[in-house]
Amino acid sequence: MTEFTLWDIVRNLLLAMRWTVLLSLVSFIGGGLVATLLLFMRIGRGRFLRFVAKYYVELFQGTPLLMQLFLAFFGLGLFGINVPAWLAAGFALILWSAAFLTEIWRGCVESVFKGQWEASASLGMGYVQQMRYVIIPQALKIAIPPTVGFSVQVIKGTALTSIIGFVELSKAGTIVTNATFQPFTVYGLVALFYFALCWPLSKSSQILERKLNVAHRSH
């Protein structure tokens, strides 16, 4: 039996971590794009589109991400026989991220003070102009800290893709554990690597939030 050194373990985990980072980026950016579309449906004037976006969010926030992954894996399989794990993983994580980002951003748009709508209306702006020039620029600023905070949830969410067979950091942890029989060390290291990815993002989200609050208090 091959002897594994600590360096072997670390190296294998770090190699797999690239996929965690890549999948996180794809999910976050893809989710952001879908969320932008959903957001405009959600806060727009079309009653039907508003309804669709609202229940999309409720559905994805009310069911486990793991189930969404399974359904994507087997559901996509209904269209073609062999669905690679990365495709199902990316697909499900994008849709899942989109739901949460839509809800976060909607909260930001709604937290823009009502007087801003009234003032811009009294100056003759239409709905689209109000959104474009007055509401969205202010909402964007408020949205940065919670959006950065959510990126942490996306990174942690990618761990579940190991269950449908995508080899990223968690899956590599399981594979390495099976080879080394050192679950304590391996899962401890896996946890530390996730921490190294997530903690800087959590912290910067907190700092940004604090800055924003200070800026708000000064008026």
Partner: peptide
């Protein structure tokens, strides 16, 4: 608090179930 909030629940679970028995 920071450790738990910045690691996946799945890994916490594996660490407890697979890792702790070695202690």
């Amino acid at each position: 608090v920071e450790l738990i909030r910045n690691t996946p629940f799945l890994i916490q679970l594996f660490f407890i179930f697979f890792g702790l028995p070695s202690l």
